[in-house]
Amino acid sequence: MTMLPEVELPSVDMQASLGGVPMVSPVLTASGCASFGRELDPFFDLTSIGAVVTKSVQLRPRSGRATPRMAETPSGMINSIGLQGPGIDGLLADELPWLAERGVRSLVSIAGARTEDFAELAERLRGAPGVLGIEVNISCPNVESRGEVFACNPDASAAVVAAVRAAADPAHPVYAKLTPDVTDIVSVARACADAGANGLSMINTLLGLVIDPDTMRPVLGGVTGGLSGPAIRPVALRCVWQVHAALPNVPILGMGGIRTGLDALQFILAGAGAVSVGTAVFNDPSAPARIHAELADALGERGFGRLADAVGYAHRAPDEGSPGRHR
């Protein structure tokens, strides 16, 4: 390859899909890492990415937890925000119109304490302008009853997903967001898919803890919190790999520690049709646009003309094609 003269790479078709709904880019923000999008407007063109994934919204406004809410960890951070947010009324009145007026598409993350809450939220989002779909956050670790995260139980996950699918706008794909903090993520993924999920978002944060050596107490006001950032990337990638292997026809929105185009490429190769960029935005607020460009280059360098051809490519049989020269 080094003998070849340098040529301009052919442009890669980066069109992606969210449960059948086309997107101009496979790169999205991640829930809880971009607020409702507008703070990132100064840093890159929000219409150039697949969608802004909103912070999880609930039926009522929530104050969130007491501070301290975060601690830096090696190649990551741990947070316990507690889903601070304006509630569905604030989202519909202030946030979604701002995005829609600018042509920015949104994937609205919803969260609730009861199955009915999720269904009501999905119902309220019917016909909302600019909304591409719904991400069902059944896996936030920073809820009141930490041992009772929906996504830790296949039946509870399925109940929420089915209720949301029934209540949601038929045009809105419903993605279930899963936690890696389970023994068998495939069984939860399968339950969600069987219940009508149009796709799966993987992964939410891992539950973690940091203790301050000076105070000799947990750093976070919420004691435990969600670990995110590049530190969790191999775990996330493993989850995407396992679920794609078991359920190859279920679309996956991959996330967990993506910081560069090559990181995103790993998720695509493992089976994700699109990716969310989360904690990296705190380090680099223009990361989603940068990662889109880097991913396009990385695909082109490897001979891919279309993003879609690379999805799940790492699962091919050993004798199938020569690595890195797919056409």
Binding site: R60, R114, E148, V149, A156
Partner: peptide, 10 residues
Amino acid sequence: AMTLAHTPAG
């Protein structure tokens, strides 16, 4: 809204 009762998942 931070102290709402949570329905056990399973």
